[in-house]
Amino acid sequence: MDATVEQHRGAKRRSDLGRSDRRSGYLMLLPALLIIGAITIFPILYSMYMSLNHVTLTQNGYLMSFNAGANYNILLHSPVYWYSVEFTVMYAVVTVIVELVLGLLIALAINNVQRLKNISLVIMLVPWALITVISAQMWGYIYNGVYGVLNYLLQSMHIIQAPITWLGTSSSAIIAMMVADVWKTTPFVVIILLGGLQMIPEEYYEAAYMDGANRWQSFWKVTLPLLRGSIALAGLFRILQAFGVFDLPFVLTGGGPGNATQSLAILGYQILFQDLQFGRGSAIAVSTVILVLVVCLVFLSAFRSIVKGGDA
């Protein structure tokens, strides 16, 4: 850890390069920065601008009239919007926690087997490699209330008597969607954590063993602290994706039943592209960005304090 801290300090130190050298350096960076600006910064700023306007679609493009915070005001007073926020936050928190725990367990297991490491990695990767639209359709068949495989299995094992409509009631649809998400994205967490695990030098475990630590202690004192960077990385990626979840509910439930599985992205899509309310839809997008930033900051600071507590 000390080495990385030193590197960090080194980067902050004033460069020995001369002024003209620095200027030509910036010039060389310019094309890349322009491209990044054009494809990421501009759309973000533009949708922020749109979110502050009443936007009408015309034959010659958008017609904007500034309406200050009217779009946001509508959002704040909309129960449909607040339900979407609630659902998305709940969905993200539950799936990310389950995936991190499950992913860590699987990564530890795979890291400890010698013979079938590669094959188990490949098998793990299959769900992650499948396109979500296709895997969501597949889960749709599994959950189907009339000819679904899940009902068939449970019925033939006499666990349930009559077929259950998994996607037809709100609580079971939400759980069904979470299961499909965990199935698909846990492998991603496994890959990241496995990478982290393999970077931990064997000597640390030997040293811990010499000091008389049992496996449980060496997991808490060696593995987990050294893995925290990887866990934070996997967690952040998952939070970002979970907040933008669109394809899974779009195919699996269409946001239903009612609007039980209507994530912020689904709601934004509906307002933007079905209702053609571009101002309001952009306001949903911008509010989602702010929400994600806040959640990521909370996650990082909470995570830091938890792991530090474990360190001491």
């Binding site: 409509t165 037809g168 009631t169 709100s170 946001g255 239903g256 039943p257 009612g258 609007n259 039980a260």
Partner: peptide, 10 residues
Amino acid sequence: SNVNAALSGT
């Protein structure tokens, strides 16, 4: 969406 919620019993 609301009729569907009622059909589902929610």
